[in-house]
Amino acid sequence: MKLMIAQTNPVWAEPTTNLEALESLCRLAVEAKVDLLALPELAFTGYNIFERLDALAEAIDGSIVTAVASLADKYGLYVLFGLAERRPNGELSNAAILIDDHGQHIATYDKRYLWDREHQFFTAGKESCVVDTRFGKLGLMICYDNEFPEVARELAQAGAQIILSPTANMLPNAERQVLQIRTRAIDNQCFVACINRSGVEESLHYCGNSIVAGPDGEVLGRLGLAPGTVIVDIDLARIDESRTHQDYLKDLRIFDGADL
């Protein structure tokens, strides 16, 4: 699979403007024969929108998902992006949405580990998400989920070969983010990609440094602070190679009181 990470700096609270910019990214991805284009957390609204959520949160069949689905179908791309989703019961979730190359919505993941002010506005998700695609099993997590090893481990145990995490992480966390993503990859001997954003929203300075790590923790692609893209070829055979000498998931033991 050929993966493109788009580390964007969206215009705050202007989804129409940000969606217009998506088409040029789609063209770039097609020229590079990319299979999946991945964007950050809350990709088309900006992250620091808590006081604007009533206006900016959308249902899964709203204008943002509809527009992305149309472009995914037009360009024959899988597209992953973050969305402030309004659920049918009125609750809000910080979601990751996956659209396939025919414009079909095939997965929604609701962020399970909420950070800071998110607790006041979003309802935490309860379920992990692994989706089978023609280029492998994809697991989804979002931003603060990266910092809890249990999330990636649960996805790997459910068969995820590639874990993708739309993110809006801030300074001074760039190197910690890189270390955590590499660790999640090596611990689970799978591919892990963090799709972070750039720019500034009021007091929030985003740290960029989006990264794709391989099954042995190797850095396959990494960006700096500025907006940009990176394309990585993902060879799933690397997973079996990594597990030849030690297979952490197979050898994992769960201890209880009787083992102590």
Rank of each mutant, 00 (worst) to 15 (best):
D116Y: 12
A32M: 13
R86P: 02
L77N: 03
K111P: 04
L36Y: 05
E31C: 04
D73I: 00
A96V: 01
T133W: 04
R52Q: 15
A55V: 11
E147K: 12
W115A: 12
V65G: 02
Y109D: 01
L36N: 06
D61Y: 07
L98H: 07
V34F: 07
G46C: 07
I142H: 00
V151M: 12
I142R: 00
V79I: 15
K74F: 05
Y75S: 11
F135V: 11
E85F: 00
L42Y: 05
G139E: 03
A38K: 01
E150R: 13
R134Y: 10
G46H: 00
D101M: 05
D73R: 15
R134E: 13
Y47E: 07
V68G: 03
A84F: 06
I99C: 09
Q104G: 09
T66Y: 05
G90W: 06
R87D: 12
E127Q: 15
P149D: 14
A96Q: 04
E150D: 15
R112F: 09
D145F: 11
D145K: 06
W115Y: 12
Q120C: 07
I99P: 01
V151R: 10
T66K: 14
A57H: 04
A69R: 15
D110M: 11
L56I: 05
L53P: 01
L138A: 10
R87P: 03
R86E: 08
L92Y: 11
G139F: 02
E127S: 15
Q120L: 14
Q104W: 09
A72K: 03
K74Y: 08
S93K: 11
G103H: 09
A43F: 01
G125P: 02
I60W: 06
K137N: 15
A55D: 14
